[in-house]
């Protein structure tokens, strides 16, 4: 398991756990980031900025701190 911020660009992983607070977690769940969802990392902003991912066909930007709380398994 690795965290989303450490995922390499253009790699995919399947979400296993989200360790965020209730509010952020609910928001992420509503946007489709729940255990079992496949996420593709597109890029991260320079200097350890936020990450941009593809989830369920749409592009989301997630702050670095929150990305660190999303854990998943690499899709080989």
């Amino acid at each position: 398991m690795i965290t989303l911020d450490l995922l390499q660009n253009n790699r995919e992983f399947i979400v296993r756990r989200v360790h965020a607070g209730w509010r952020a977690k609910t928001r992420l769940a509503n946007l489709g980031i729940v255990p079992g969802t496949k996420i593709k990392k597109l890029r991260s902003a320079p200097l350890f900025g936020p990450v941009q991912v593809k989830v369920k066909g749409s592009d989301l930007v997630i702050g670095r701190g929150l990305a660190r709380k999303i854990l998943g398994e690499l899709v080989s």
Binding site: A24, R27, L28, L31, P50, Q52, S58, D59, L60, V61, I62, G63, R64, G65, L66
Partner: peptide
């Protein structure tokens, strides 16, 4: 502080 969650459009 709240973290950024935002949709990015083409």
């Amino acid at each position: 502080q709240t973290e950024l969650i935002m949709e990015m459009h083409e």
